[in-house]
Structure formats: C-alpha cells, structure tokens
C-alpha cells in the first residue's frame, strides 16, 4: 500500500469535467511527478488532497486514513504540506516570520495560547527556521518583508515553509516556475537531498522537464482530467500517448 492512495476521484465544475476517475498511488519516500498540459487538472487534484476542494466522488487515503471532509489545518497537522502555484505567503511579515509560523504550527498544533513568552526567546524555532532558509540559500534575506521578494524567491520561501514542518508528504505545485536556471538547479539539489536524507514523500507538478527527470522516481501524465500514463521516467520520454497529449493539448 502506498503513502497516498487516490481512487476514482471525480470533480466537475459546471459543465467541465476537471477530474475524471483519477487513480494514483504514491509510494512512501518517493518523488512522484505529475505532468500534463495546461488545464489538465493537476492543481485541482492537489486541491482535493489539502481540503480546498472536495471531490464529487472517489477516495483519498493518506497512510490508511481518509483526507476527505477534513479541515485544511487538520490535514496539515496530519503531515501534508503544500507549496501553491500562485505564491501563498504572509506578505506583510518578514521572511523569517513566514517560516517561524509553520514551525510553531508543527510544534504547538492548531491552537496554543502562547501570549507572554517573547518570540525572541523561542530559540529552537529561530534555529529551525534559519537552518531551512540556509538550506535554500536565503539566509541573507531573513529580515526582508516577504512581499518585496521576486517570484522565484517567494517560491523558495514557500518551500522553506513546507520543509520546516518536516512533513510526511510534501505537495509542490510548480516549485521552480519564475526561478533563474541557477536557483532551479539549487532547488533540485535541495529537494533531492531532502528526499534522500529525510525520506519525505513528494508529489511535484512541473512543466520544466529538466526538473521532472532530475527528480522523479515515477511519473503520472494527466490530460483532460484523466491519468493517461503512469510509469518510470525512462519509459515516459518515448511514450506516444504522452506526446499526443502535449501536442493535442494547450501547447
């Protein structure tokens, strides 16, 4: 049994069948890539995992427990963190604060009335946030206001926010979009290192094939809401169905 088991998931928006009988098994400790043309339903699928959307039918099981019908914060506390396609950060706060908040959530749970201890004295939380930012090459930006950063840096910040929680499952929706080549390569290194050393299970959505083939242990191809192929990376490249999906799709 996989860490994440998705069975027969359907989602309809008005007349549009955004997800059509999606099945997906993600093995524990693996990096699973989901690729497919624009509008294929990739982000919609992730939305069904984190409680943003509820599928019309089907099941989503995470380590044997259903994720459906649970609040987003409960799903996160169960060990699922997500990096969004359009950056979702605390724009008015500093980079460091942005990372300390998920770190506190990981330590203290969904609510903790910790109103008298100065934040300065939370040395553990400070250290963890610093370490993760260091890993992602952002140690020099800790005091910047998050809103003032480039799109690529916001991505990296969001990744830090996910990683600091030491999740069991990390969902990455186009993590390198808007990044320079160098930052993209650095991100690949970081994710590979984390995948190897901590054994975090990851689902990564990407259009950049360099990233996909550098990281993925397994690839699912989604087109028009359906998984048309699921296979090892070396078998995906030459696959006729995949080429058709991309040529016939938005590209």
């Amino acid at each position: 049994m996989g860490a994440l088991e998705v069975r027969g998931v359907n989602k309809r928006f008005g007349g549009l069948q955004a997800l059509n009988d999606v099945n997906l098994t993600v093995e524990e400790g693996r990096i699973h890539a989901i690729i497919g043309p624009n509008g294929a339903g990739k982000s919609t699928l992730l939305n069904c995992f984190v409680g943003r959307l509820t599928p019309d039918s089907g099941t989503v099981m995470f380590h044997g427990k259903s994720l459906l019908g649970r609040q987003p914060h409960q799903i996160n506390q169960a060990g699922v963190s997500r990096v969004f396609q359009t950056p979702e950060i605390f724009a008015d706060l500093t980079v460091l604060e942005n990372v300390m908040i998920p770190a506190l959530a990981h330590r203290d749970g969904i609510f903790e009335f910790n109103a008298f201890k100065p934040m300065r004295h939370e040395t553990d939380i400070h250290k963890r946030a610093h370490d993760v930012l260091e890993d992602l090459g952002m140690a020099d930006k800790t005091d910047m206001v998050a809103a003032s950063m480039s799109r690529g840096d916001k991505r990296r910040l969001e990744m830090a926010m996910g990683l600091v929680q030491e999740p069991k499952l990390l969902l990455l929706d186009e993590p390198t979009a808007g990044m320079s080549r160098a930052d993209t390569n650095n991100t690949i290194e970081v994710l590979r290192h984390i995948g190897d050393s901590r054994g975090i299970t990851m689902i990564i959505i990407e259009h950049d094939m360099h990233v996909v083939f550098s990281l993925a242990d397994r690839i699912s191809v989604l087109a028009q809401g359906t998984v048309i192929v699921e296979d090892a990376p070396e078998n995906i490249k030459g696959n006729v169905k995949v080429q058709e999906a991309y040529l016939g799709g938005a590209h």
Binding site: Q71, E88, I110
Partner: peptide, 15 residues
C-alpha cells in the same frame, strides 16, 4: 498578524 496577512494560508499551515 498572520491572520491579518493571509487567513487562508494560515489554515494550510496547520493553524
């Protein structure tokens, strides 16, 4: 302050 900045994000952060 995080509530004011991005309420939505906070719930996806486990709060």
């Amino acid at each position: 302050k995080a509530v004011k900045s991005n309420n939505q994000r906070l719930s996806y952060t486990g709060i």
